[in-house]
Nucleic acid binder design. Structure first.
Lengths: 231, 231
DNA sequence: GGCGCTAACTTATCGTGGTTAACATATCGA
DNA sequence: TCGATATGTTAACCACGATAAGTTAGCGCC
């Protein structure tokens, strides 16, 4: 069995119509996502496996994607689209910091729902210069951006460019999501609570950090904290 | 050139003495670390490449490591040992929260110095039950643990089990380290400042979060913050 | 109807990588 | 000296990513 088996001789897959080569493109993407979701292992998404699922030979993949990395990136882009949609909703009039924490937790939950997709999305090399601000242009990031701006208007953060704040909060969300996925056996306790706790702590910390001034040392904070009335 | 070339026929590597098969074990580990550090790419550390560097044929690796994953895990364990040593030092009498932030930043810097090692350490699957608390038993984690206990004694955190606090802080450190490695092109600004900022914010946030009470909502925080005198 | 163009595939093949089975040999205790 | 065995090597298998070259089906056109 050294040769790869043909797709399925009994049902010879009908070749796509002349202009509709894009059909296969979509099917390949779906198959790749499905393989990742079902097996849960990134290495299971081989070009050959994807081709088998679609019912096509492996070189056909290369008619629609330049190489494996392109396929992975396409899957990831698709995923981030879904994430953006999910972060969009929310009750109007929701306090901005509540909204920010909710979005952060939603981000983490999304990552936990499709851990292999998330791993690929955040842990691939992809140091390509061309895609410099690919992340920053996702709708998910735009939603974060928007909510942070609302927080600034509410006086929770100092007014200015929301991007640094967004990056710091994203780092916190990514950190807990990533570790929950990679080290699930650690004593995290309830996952939702852990996610919520870290997001709240980071958001509050950034706010207090700005309140105390960017040049405040940890010792300054300790002194200030000691001066707070007990609750 | 389909066959693999022999190591080096001109200098026939002396076989190790009867009891010293462990020599090769160490050399393999060094070679694997070296390949990762030099090339900076995880895929460059193939079994065959490691064997070539050592001057041995690839199947010999399997006399000392069960499979590639075992070799990777061994490299990672070695790395965490180095990390633990580095986190150990520090001036006596250093305020505990300063120490905590310094250790967090040192952790992040360590990750940035050997990004591929770090990627392997934190992003591999390794869901093996046997190694349940492998991370928690590293000296690096022990140092975090110790410093957090000192913070608790200083009233910065509520007294109790340091492990949850350590995990949350570790998540923050890992998040920023991981993103700095995976997405270096994002506008992080100065890397050291970013690391320090996130660590400080998270530590302060956890402290304030405990001060306000675990059940405090983000809205509670906003109300409390608005009551603070302007600085 | 038939003819050619070409999009949409397949077949065959290459090189690399992880892993294993079978074989070889140097070392060491008895 | 001699056999047991630790310490390797040779040869091979199979899966994978990728490419080159061949094939076929749909479509416009006369």
């Amino acid at each position: 069995m050294t040769a790869h088996p043909p797709p399925n001789p009994s049902s010879p897959r009908r070749r796509a119509r002349r202009g509709s080569g894009e059909q296969l493109h979509g099917k390949i993407l779906d198959a790749a996502k499905q393989l990742l979701a079902e097996t849960g292992r990134a290495e299971a998404m081989s070009i050959r496996a994807v081709a088998d699922v679609v019912g096509v030979t492996s070189p056909s993949i290369y008619l629609h994607f330049a190489d494996k990395d392109s396929l992975v990136q396409a899957v990831v882009a698709d995923l981030f689209g879904e994430l953006g949609e999910r972060l969009g909703g929310g009750t109007p009039g929701e306090p901005p910091l509540d909204k920010l924490c909710r979005q952060g937790t939603a981000y983490i939950m999304f990552a936990l729902e499709s851990p292999e997709h998330y791993r690929l999305a955040t842990m691939s090399a992809s140091t390509e210069i061309g895609k410099v601000d690919l992340v920053l242009q996702t709708t998910a990031f735009a939603h974060f951006h928007q909510t942070i701006t609302e927080c600034m208007d509410a006086g929770i953060f100092a007014k200015g460019d929301p991007t640094p704040v967004a990056l710091d909060l994203w780092a916190a969300a990514h950190g807990i999501a990533s570790l929950l996925i990679a080290k699930p056996y650690l004593p995290w306790g309830d996952v939702t609570e852990a996610a919520d706790r870290v997001m709240r702590a980071t958001a509050m910390g950034l706010s207090i950090s700005e309140y105390l001034g960017a040049d405040a040392t940890p010792a300054d904070f300790v002194g200030w904290r000691a001066s707070l009335p007990p609750r």
